[in-house]
Every structure is written in C-alpha cells, then in structure tokens.
Design a protein around this nucleic acid. Structure first.
Lengths: 227, 227
DNA sequence: TATCAAAGTGTAAAAAACACACGAAGGCAA
DNA sequence: TTGCCTTCGTGTGTTTTTTACACTTTGATA
C-alpha cells in the first residue's frame, strides 16, 4: 500500500452510458460483471480513473477496454457521489454518455460480456446504474430537441425515414412525416446523395449524409434543432 | 499518514459559482485565498470533499464555511478533471452553481475575505476557476430561457421591472417591456400583492411574489419559460 | 401489367412572436 | 395648486412559426 494520504480519499471512477440505434429501438450497451460486488449482474461499462489521465480519457479508455468501442460523441453527464453507492467503500463516479453508429453497435455485440439492451426492456442493474441511465435518457431526450445529435446514431448514409424513426424512438411519440421532413431539411444540414436506398417492393428512398462543416458551425454558436 | 491505498488517488474537491443580482448587474461571489498556491488570488469558494459526505453536502458545507451563505438553489454544474489543474497534485473538482437572493448578497459582503464582483469586471482567478465560471455563466443563460429560475435571484417581493432588469443583465440584451410582461404573466406563476413599491418621484410599481406551488409543478414536468 | 408498400409532396388554419407609442400615477419643486 | 418629471402599465396589427391533414409517385415483385 504505497500510496498514503493525510485524509481518507474517495475512489474515483467513470461510467459510460452508450446509446445505439438499430433502426427500431434505442439500445444501451451493458456489460456483465465478473467480480463482486454485484457479480454476474449487468452494469454500465466503466472503471477507475488513473491518477495521470483526464476524466474524458478515462471514459474513452474504459469504454474501449470493456467493449472494444470508440466513439466520436462522448460527453460528461453528471457526477454521482452519494456515500453508499458502492457497498465496499466511498466511490464517486463521473458518468458519461456516448452515442455510437450502427457499425459500432454490431461490433460491440462480439465483445464477450457486452450486450445491447433496448431501453424499454432493461435488466436490473448493479450499483446506482439505473439512476445513471435514467439521467442519461432524460439528457438525450432534451438534447435531441435542441441539437442535431441524431446523426451520431445513424450510419453515414441514411434516409429521412430512418432519421424520423430515430427521433420517434428517442422521444417516444410519433411525428408527422411532412412536418418532420420540412423541418429536418430546413437546417441545410442534410446533403442528398445520388444513391437511393432500395429495400423491399416499393419506391426506394433518397439517401442523405449530413454536412459536418455546417454541423460544427451550429455546434459552436448553439443550435435550435427542435422537431 | 494513516490512509493508504493500493493505487494513487486524486483528491476530490467541490467549487461553487454563486450568482447574485443587485438590481443592476449580475454578480459572482469570490474569496481571497489565504494559502498557497495562488495565495492572495481570488477564487471560487470550495474545498475538499469529506469521505463521509455527499457531493451536494460538501458544496453546501464549504459554501457556508467560507461565505456564511446558505442557498435554496444549488445545482451540480460539471466536473473538472484535467491533470494539471492544481499544481500540487491531481485534484478533481465537482463544480456547483448557486443562486442567492439579495438579502444573502449583502450578508456575504460581511464575510471578511468574500467579495462580490460583477461578471463584467472580474479579477484574474486561481486554478482553472475562470473556465468554471464561464461554464456556469453559459449554463445560467441557457437555463434562464427555459426555466423560471430568475426568482431565485430576486427578493420575495419584486416588481416586473426588476424581473426584466434581471433577464436583461443575464442575457446581456434589452427586452421589450410589453412583450416581456405579457409573457411573464402568461405562466400564471406571479401573484400580484396588495402592496406597491414606491421609489422616487414617479408612479409606484405593482409588487409580485411567485407561486411556489406552481413553480414546483412546472419544475417537475419541465418548463418552457422563454422570454 | 397489376399489385403492393413505402416515398415524397403542399396548403390552409391556428398559434406564437414581434414591433411599436402613449396615457396614468405619484413625488417634487416652484 | 399647478406643472413637471419619471417610471408604470397597457393593446393591436403584422409576421413568422407551428400544426393538421391526404393523395400521387416510384420501383420491385408476382
């Protein structure tokens, strides 16, 4: 025990709420704990912050170590610091939330002990991770209505219907097709591609990609992507 | 040094950004540091989190110890965890922001080493406290436009003009009087009192208080207090 | 070539946001 | 007491945004 301090110190961890979208439902990535406490229970990926790394770095590192995922979108969520949230000792956890695209979703499914769950059908979770997840969901819903972060959850090429399905899944309510499309296009953020998306015996859909330059501009001066 | 751990641990602190409003400008409460590092520099009130108290409790305790203030409105802001933010060792700080009413503003002025500064004219700050303050200001501006938190900064009885001055001070832009009043009253959150506020040789202003019951209801189901 | 299923499109009505100017009330001083 | 000064308090017309709503188009498949 070479590290000694005058006063007792809390341990510091990060936990990541990773959201993905499979076209139908919003999903969350969980890992099965191999060790006590809460052995064999499902939990958010996360772990201890090293003394020489930033919180953001710790979140990215733990996410990759435990699930193999990297993500473009990782944001601090909230810090959970009630005294008994870990039965062993005082542990303060800085929670993050991440959005990943479908390719990453299927990749993570390969990780032995990581699994995607639809948010509507979650197992019981270790520690206070259910609280963290609820906080993350609330935040995601809020953000979606004033920032165009939906793109982080879609493949690079997507149709307007896919975008709408995503919004409906996150917000939990159906949206009007015409109004949605009008609004989505009004931000001048979607670039139509030459390609079409053919699926099934019906009219194929126009594919779009989103314009990262305009996206960054909007990100800087604040958005207004209400739908 | 009786407290030893297998791995080195970061120290954990809380820092509070306390906003007040004096009728004219938005103010922030700072304390002068008595100890190194940054001795004699201005800093946010804050200090170490004890191992047996929650983060919220620590923020309240430090705020009261250093400034004598208690507040109804204290909210976690963001956790700052870059590696070198404290020159001595790794310190992770959970920042809070607080809103206090004018009575508390004057009380805090008595605290020997605490002083209010207008946000437009701040001294240079210790550590990364300038970053924290900027983050808090951004958050306050954002919150003010979709939550009726302005009341936390006003005395129990206030006039519509005072409320408008506050919004103008925080948002940094003038607002139309008629539209402001129409909107402010439309939420059915302001209760007119019998009293009037007389000040100077002109028509006295109607005093209002706000309805805490409706406020709590709105707080729960999310607001929409855009002005 | 008929059928199927989702893609794609416009307009009118309602609601919200905005711009804007003057009479009312009370203190004060002449 | 009268007039002046200063802030309080109010309403309407215009523009913009939001909402509700249904039919034609397109390509694959049988």
């Amino acid at each position: 025990m070479p590290h000694a301090y005058e006063f007792p110190r809390a341990a510091l961890t990060v936990d990541c709420v990773v959201f993905g979208f499979d076209g139908g439902e919003l999903q969350v990535l969980l890992i099965r704990r191999g060790l006590a406490p809460f052995k064999d229970k499902w939990a958010l990926p996360g772990g201890f912050v090293r003394v020489e790394e930033t919180l953001d770095d710790a979140a990215r590192r733990e996410l990759e170590e435990e699930t193999g995922l990297k993500t473009d979108f990782l944001e601090q969520l909230y810090t959970f610091g009630t005294v008994k949230r870990d039965p062993r000792e005082r542990v303060v956890s800085v929670a993050y939330f991440a959005l990943v695209k479908p390719a990453a979703v299927t990749a993570a499914t390969d990780a032995a002990e990581a699994k995607w769950f639809p948010v509507s059908d979650l197992p019981s979770l270790a520690f206070d991770h259910a609280d963290i997840l609820t906080t993350a969901l609330t935040r995601l819903r809020g953000k979606l209505t004033y920032q165009p972060i939906g793109f982080e959850l879609l493949p690079p090429k997507f149709t307007l219907t896919q975008l709408q399905r995503l919004y409906e899944a996150v917000l939990g309510e159906p949206l009007d097709k015409r109004n949605f499309r009008k609004k989505a296009l009004s931000y001048d953020l979607l670039i139509p591609l030459q390609e079409k998306h053919q699926e099934g015996p019906h009219r194929p859909a126009q594919l779009f990609r989103f314009d990262p330059v305009k996206y960054e501009k909007l990100k800087k001066k604040g958005f207004l992507f209400e739908i």
